[in-house]
Nucleic acid binder design. Structure first.
Lengths: 210, 210
DNA sequence: TCTATTTATGAATCGTTATTCAATTTCGCA
DNA sequence: TGCGAAATTGAATAACGATTCATAAATAGA
């Protein structure tokens, strides 16, 4: 058994080496400009070896997105579950999003920047898997808004729409941060987004309040 | 003169035919998957003809973005200039954004979805022109927030950051609308975004208010 | 109408790169 | 150590598609 086990484990290690290299190369040059031999070289393998672990170039990309989303989902789930207050949950979700993507900037680039433009071109079996993971994460946000609405804390609105906009708001702030390094600490960005999304940017004293 | 003029005018017409075709093809298949002969066929010209009007494939794409942004800028500028109240300006800007992109969905796909992933790969002379136009539009938003802050209507904050997030919020709602047709009327979407961004999604009666 | 000039064409070229595969190396085992 | 199986390799293949260019069509002016 030990030998079979080790082989399997080594296989996973090699597979992972390739994924790590691919993430770097894809993020640096974009899906279309990255080439497989480049990924292989980065991972210190021969070009053909890559094809022992992945069906084709797209398969590498999908596996990468899948792994990233699974990791993100797991970490959000773990931190969010113990909380009950919707506002706290939302804040925790957001902070984790900033933390995770700041720690995985390459993944962020792939996921937010590249992914959209690839959707249309591809339709592998994995495509659906990726979409499932994406929706699962989206659903966390939508559920929190639903809870908040039910609890009378948030205005009645379509929770999916809210989750969508909340995601957009935070993604854009993250983009700014990933590309030009601005935005300040995770704490600051979290508070900023929470404040805008929950309270708005309108000043609330006296006559300017509507 | 008349002959020279006509030639020039015809040239512009042909150039525009190609741009119209390219917008359609790029939006449908993405920059990398679209091919030039496809664009030529869509425009009812031979492949080589395209190269009489554009330097290369990227040049077509850039010209498209440039034209779209110029049109958008002009229409926003025109409608916004006469207003004085920052909130009204913002609302007008947003409504125009929804109106414009809803009328030019293909352009929206190119600009929002494709553009990000192409930034890194390209660096033509036109690239800078596109970025200039982009910044010019962004500046309109940032200026409105600045005015609002100065007038004491908005919370003191970095107007650029606000403009960025405001853009993200509305883009995401637009994406939803462009891709699955949801979101309701322009009026409704505008009000939704304005309300969230200005007042937040928190319910403001009694104990739930902080 | 006829020639010169401009414009259009799409087949051929050329470069690129994903993918394959025959040859080689490594590994497990006796 | 030596044999067969499994894994690795990177050069060769094959497909694709941007760009060019020799040829043809259209046009302007005489």
């Amino acid at each position: 058994m030990s030998i079979v086990d080790r082989k399997e484990r080594d296989k996973q290690i090699r597979r992972n080496d390739i994924l790590v290299a691919a993430e770097k190369v894809f993020a640096a040059r974009g899906f279309h400009n990255a080439n497989v031999s480049e990924i292989a070289k980065e991972a210190q393998y021969g070009t053909g070896t890559v094809y022992l672990y992945f069906k084709d170039k797209e398969d590498i990309y999908r596996a990468l997105i899948l792994k990233g989303l699974d990791d993100f989902f797991a970490s959000v789930q773990e931190r969010t579950l113990s909380l009950t207050d919707p506002v706290e949950k939302l804040k925790c979700f957001l902070a984790e999003k900033f933390r995770f993507f700041e720690a995985h900037k390459d993944f962020f680039k792939l996921y937010i920047v590249e992914n959209n433009s690839l959707q249309s071109a591809f339709s592998s079996e994995r495509e659906q898997e990726c979409m499932d993971r994406h929706m699962r994460i989206f659903a966390i946000g939508a559920a929190i808004f639903q809870e908040g609405i039910d609890a009378g804390m948030f205005k009645p609105a379509d929770p999916k729409e809210l989750a969508f906009m909340f995601g957009g708001l935070s993604n854009y702030l993250m983009m700014k941060m990933v590309f030009d390094g601005s935005g300040g600490s995770i704490e600051r960005k979290t508070d900023l987004v929470m404040d805008i999304f929950l309270n708005g940017c309108r000043k609330v004293d006296g006559k300017t309040q509507v």
